[in-house]
């Protein structure tokens, strides 16, 4: 039994089908990348996993528990947390309040204080800005806040949708370094990225999506082969 198992999922919006038979697994403490050009269904896949949209068919289980048909608020409590695209922090609320909100989905409330401290340790910048409006933070700080907010719920698995969006290369590096330490603490991470090179060398395994299907599965070893990568990503037919 894997931590997260996605089995033959078909999903979409209304009559429009987007995903056609997606399957993958991820083990504890591992990282998985999902890459592909705009519009191949990466975000739809994430929304389906977190329960924002209901799939047409297939199965998704977390720690052996079937999560299909559950809403996002219940899935968080089972240990799966999404850092949404564009971060979606509450700009009008303070940094501390944003973190506080992260506690909502936490199961073990007795250790809330400890979790807050631990997160502040990983992201020291959040302590110094605790009283500030979250909207005043820089893009990189906002991304850190969004990740911190998700971590406070104590997820077994963290999903990130386009974490590099709008960030400068140095900040991106910082964010990925922090993700590395999160993974080494035993949390699994799934990163969805349009910019493939960021994840292919980073993640233990990377899925390349095209037209709602998984086109290829590559390891960091494969990623060194530029040509192979390009073929998989852009989908030349030979």
């Amino acid at each position: 039994m894997s931590l997260l198992e996605v089995n033959d999922v078909y999903s979409g919006y209304g009559k429009v089908e987007v995903l056609f038979g997606i399957s993958f697994k991820i083990e504890p403490g591992k990282s998985l990348g999902i890459v592909g050009p705009n519009g191949v269904g990466k975000s739809t896949l994430l929304k389906t996993i977190v329960g924002e949209i209901q799939p047409k068919s297939g199965a998704i289980s977390l720690n052996g528990i079937e999560i299909l048909g559950k809403g996002p608020e219940d899935i968080v409590r089972l240990g799966l947390c999404l850092v949404p695209e564009g971060r979606q922090i509450f700009g009008g609320l303070s940094v501390a309040e944003n973190l506080q909100l992260g506690l909502t989905g936490r199961q073990d409330k007795s250790t809330s204080k400890k979790a807050l401290d631990k997160v502040k340790e990983i992201f020291p910048v959040l302590t110094s800005h605790a009283k500030h409006q979250a909207g005043m933070l820089s893009g990189g700080q906002q991304q850190q806040l969004a990740i911190a907010r998700a971590l406070i719920a104590d997820p077994k698995i963290l999903l990130l949708d386009e974490p590099s969006l709008g960030l400068s290369p140095t900040v991106i590096k910082d964010v990925f370094d922090q993700l590395k330490s999160i993974i080494s603490n035993g949390t699994s991470v799934i990163i969805v990225e349009q910019r493939a090179h960021l994840v292919t060398s980073f993640a233990d395994e990377t899925l390349i999506m095209r037209n709602g299907k998984i086109q290829a599965r590559i390891t960091p070893e494969d990623a060194k082969d530029e040509l192979k990568l390009k073929h998989a990503y852009f989908g030349s037919d030979n």
Partner: peptide, 16 residues
């Protein structure tokens, strides 16, 4: 307050 700003994200964080 969070739900009033963005209910979708609030749910992602576990707001029932």
């Amino acid at each position: 307050r969070a739900a009033a700003i963005d209910f979708k994200t609030a749910r992602l964080l576990g707001v029932r």
